[in-house]
Amino acid sequence: MGFKLLSKLLVYLTASIMAIASPLAFSVDSSGEYPTVSEIPVGEVRLYQIADGVWSHIATQSFDGAVYPSNGLIVRDGDELLLIDTAWGAKNTAALLAEIEKQIGLPVTRAVSTHFHDDRVGGVDVLRAAGVATYASPSTRRLAEVEGNEIPTHSLEGLSSSGDAVRFGPVELFYPGAAHSTDNLIVYVPSASVLYGGCAIYELSRTSAGNVADADLAEWPTSIERIQQHYPEAQFVIPGHGLPGGLDLLKHTTNVVKAHTNRSVVE
């Protein structure tokens, strides 16, 4: 069995187990497998329904001669939608809004960016022009300005110390501490036991640490421990890039980060 097929099978099995364990909360999309990078042309966006009122959005972007996937989250909030992270750029984010209108038909009224990198804030200006209120932590807003990236308009308070959590509509926002970046936030959907790890969490097929220019490698494993301790009931975990899975993604990420750190020390 090929690795790609095995990865998709694991996603399907995880979703099936969740649907059985929580039949009222989960209505997993039966329309197909989780979209992969090879299936999404740059400039297009796919939506994948995880649970009743919960979707991931998947886009792709060219970077350094390669094409990478990027995940975000959409959560229903009454007759409105909360968006977590842009679709990595203005063109993708405009396509995301169009796809949401086509498939869901509810307005996106608020959006949260989970850290300051372009795959999370690139497209904020498109959201703002569409009347979406954009939010991020003060740290993310400051770092985005320093980096020359787009800056969300509103500040999220109460997320300055490791372990801080605040309720934001249908989700809980959690600051686990520094990891992929010093400002990275985690998003949890309690009604569906869905954990969105953003770039602080890796997919299972990833074996290298990737972009760690703004990471705190020493603190990252401790931050992941905080996530595990705060959300032990999480059933569906979405990484910032690639295929979702279960809580095993947290341990896998820790292993990859520690291996990278150990290699760096040896070198």
Rank of each mutant, 00 (worst) to 15 (best):
N92I: 04
E219T: 09
I20Y: 10
S113L: 05
I20D: 14
G89N: 05
L243K: 15
V124D: 04
S16P: 12
N211P: 11
Y188A: 02
A111N: 06
D64R: 08
G65F: 06
G131F: 03
W88V: 02
V124G: 05
H154Y: 10
K102D: 13
V42M: 08
A259C: 05
N255V: 12
R263P: 14
E172N: 02
E219L: 07
D248P: 08
A218S: 13
E157Q: 14
P23W: 13
S160E: 14
K91T: 14
G43R: 07
A178K: 12
Q229L: 13
G245Y: 03
H252L: 04
A144P: 04
G131R: 08
A179G: 10
T207F: 09
H117P: 01
R142I: 12
S161Q: 14
R46H: 08
A179K: 02
R120C: 05
E33V: 10
G163H: 05
V187P: 02
F3Y: 10
Q235R: 11
H115I: 03
L204E: 13
D79N: 13
T109F: 08
A51N: 10
H57Q: 06
V166N: 06
S155D: 13
S30G: 15
T153G: 09
V67T: 15
L24M: 15
S22F: 08
L6Q: 10
A98L: 13
H230W: 07
H260K: 12
R76T: 08
S155W: 07
P152M: 00
G177F: 02
S264P: 13
L127F: 06
T153R: 10
L250R: 01
P107W: 05
L243M: 14
L159Y: 03
E145R: 14
L96A: 03
R167F: 10
G198Q: 05
L73R: 01
D85V: 01
L159G: 01
I238P: 03
R76W: 06
N255A: 14
P176C: 00
P23Q: 14
L10M: 13
A215M: 04
L47T: 08
L96P: 04
A234M: 06
E267D: 13
P35S: 08
G158I: 03
F3Q: 06
L97W: 02
N149K: 15
N71C: 02
E233P: 04
I104Y: 02
V42F: 08
S62W: 07
I201H: 05
A59V: 15
L217M: 11
S30M: 15
S70P: 05
L83Q: 02
G148T: 04
Q229W: 10
P190K: 08
A209L: 08
L173T: 04
D118E: 08
E101W: 09
F3W: 07
I224L: 07
A144F: 03
I186C: 02
I17W: 13
V146C: 09
S181M: 01
T14I: 09
R120D: 02
G242R: 05
S38F: 11
A234R: 00
H260V: 12
Y188N: 04
F174K: 00
A218Y: 14
A66T: 13
A234T: 08
S155V: 14
K102F: 07
P41T: 12
Q229V: 13
I238C: 00
I50A: 06
T254H: 14
S137P: 07
D79M: 10
D125E: 13
G240R: 04
T140C: 04
I50R: 02
V67Q: 15
L5G: 09
E147L: 11
S62V: 06
G245A: 05
F168A: 02
I40F: 09
T60G: 09
T207E: 15
T86C: 02
A179W: 03
D77L: 02
G131T: 06
H115D: 01
P23C: 13
L6D: 14
I84W: 00
D214M: 05
E145N: 11
V187N: 03
G242E: 05
P152N: 01
